[in-house]
């Protein structure tokens, strides 16, 4: 299984065959607002990360058409506690439901910036279940992440 991390020097946890740094992925886009998300969504095979987890259906449809995926980060959950974490988890569930409705891909990763925040493959799968995915969808999301990371890294090698 693949993972996306923020710090390139971090080793992969148990069951993680490759931890790709987000900065090295050309299709990784961070959108802090909805208009920004809408712009980024049109990029081919985009990995769209919105820390607010509020992306409208139009942008999700664009992500779906572009063959991309919405990124769910485990580190965002670790930053919060109590009610705030519960609210974020419920936002993630709503976004996952919206993604399923329009057929947009979803990927679950740790986005760790330090070694203590990396999570193993089993934990990332249970994160996907907690966001409301079935076992088949969770498996498919793992494969999709692998394909999108390979696509980004292959493109980067080609440019070199």
């Amino acid at each position: 299984m693949y993972d996306i991390v923020l710090d390139g020097a971090l080793p992969g946890a148990r069951g993680i065959s490759h931890a790709a740094p987000a900065a090295s992925l050309r299709n990784f886009k961070k959108a802090n607002s909805q208009p920004e998300a809408k712009q980024c969504a049109k990029t081919g095979k985009v990995l769209l990360y919105s820390p607010g987890y509020e992306i409208d259906d139009g942008a999700l449809l664009d992500v779906s058409r572009a063959g991309g995926a919405v990124v769910f980060s485990f580190s965002d959950l670790l930053l919060l506690h109590g009610f705030r974490r519960a609210i974020l988890l419920s936002k993630m569930r709503l976004l996952a439901d919206a993604c399923r409705r329009v057929g947009a891909g979803m990927v679950f990763c740790s986005m760790a910036s330090e070694a203590g925040n990396t999570r193993n493959a089993r934990e990332l799968r249970s994160f996907a279940y907690a966001a409301g995915l079935s076992s088949h969808e969770a498996a498919a999301s793992g494969k999709l992440l692998e394909a999108l990371v390979k696509y980004a890294e292959k493109g980067a090698e080609g440019k070199k």
Binding site: F74, N117, Y129, A130
Partner: peptide, 12 residues
Amino acid sequence: VDDAIFCMACLS
């Protein structure tokens, strides 16, 4: 089981 694993992972 998945809930338990997710709960464990959330302890930081």
